[in-house]
Design a protein around this nucleic acid. Structure first.
Lengths: 146, 146
DNA sequence: CTTGACTCAGTACCGTGGTACAGGGTGTAG
DNA sequence: CTACACCCTGTACCACGGTACTGAGTCAAG
């Protein structure tokens, strides 16, 4: 079982560019389990899993740097699950804040679109007039037009 | 009022590197309202407002490219309000999609964190185990779009 | 044995979003 | 008038996450 596959087979199995696999190797994220005498990389089940891990973690918003740290945690025997949990929590907090901000922006856009009477020249368009102020809620002072 | 400030004063006021302001100028995002005879850039309230807008929009996950498009809405004098409305709607759709992606991401992170018993060694950590399995049942494009 | 697909190492290049010089000119306070 | 901080243009460089190209070697089918 698990005779081992080439880099091309691995890449295809996970849906990744071959160059990307080699790039991850340079980043010390994923190496072949062995090499053939010819130098060909050999990958097994573990490596495929690891590659999927990388892709999944990326989809969750982790950078390659952070993923490398996650790997370091799972290798270090002294590390506890709590370390991983904390990192995930930090990432979650960041994501939640981003969601709130985007929802505020969406609300602003929706109300602007609702107020807009199509057909007027842009210099009377209520969307444009309030575009800057709506997002820049930090500075209250400038409401004048140019 | 609005005597106009130099690039250094503008940068400091908004908390941005001077080089960054000039970079935005190259990207046609933000130009000085005028120049002194010596060539010194002069910025007013509007420009400061615009710079804050850029920073806020960036914090919301918009690329400089997208921010430029937002600005184009307010610059095109031939455009009609309906035009603007349509593009704002497109932007809103984009924002809403992003919100959904991030919410899915947050849900995934939350469920991972919830399942995690903080005292366990990392080789039993459910977060790490889940990352190895398939977490990808939700969005593909949480981070990298465009 | 040949052919074609695959792999190797090394290097260059891409877009994004900046940041850092270099070698000048300018503005102003003392 | 002289410092000294600031500004100018231009170009180079950085990290990130890849992607592409080159020229050579390898593998398996026919």
């Amino acid at each position: 079982m698990t005779v081992g596959c080439t880099i091309g087979q691995l890449a295809k199995a996970v849906g990744v560019n071959i160059q990307t696999v080699r790039y991850y190797e340079r980043r010390r994220l994923l190496g072949p389990s062995a090499r053939r005498p010819s130098g060909y990389r050999i990958y097994g089940e573990d490596e495929e899993q690891r590659l999927r891990f990388i892709k999944n973690a990326q989809a969750l918003g982790f950078t390659l740097q952070e993923i490398a740290e996650l790997f370091k945690l799972s290798v270090t025997s002294t590390a506890r699950c709590g370390d991983v949990q904390r990192r995930a929590q930090a990432k979650l907090t960041h994501v939640e804040a981003k969601v709130r901000d985007l929802q505020a922006l969406a609300r602003a856009l929706r109300s602007l679109i609702r107020d807009c009477r199509a057909g007027q020249p842009t210099d009377r368009c209520p969307i444009l007039k309030s575009l800057q102020a709506s997002v820049t809620r930090t500075s209250r002072s400038a409401q004048r037009q140019k």
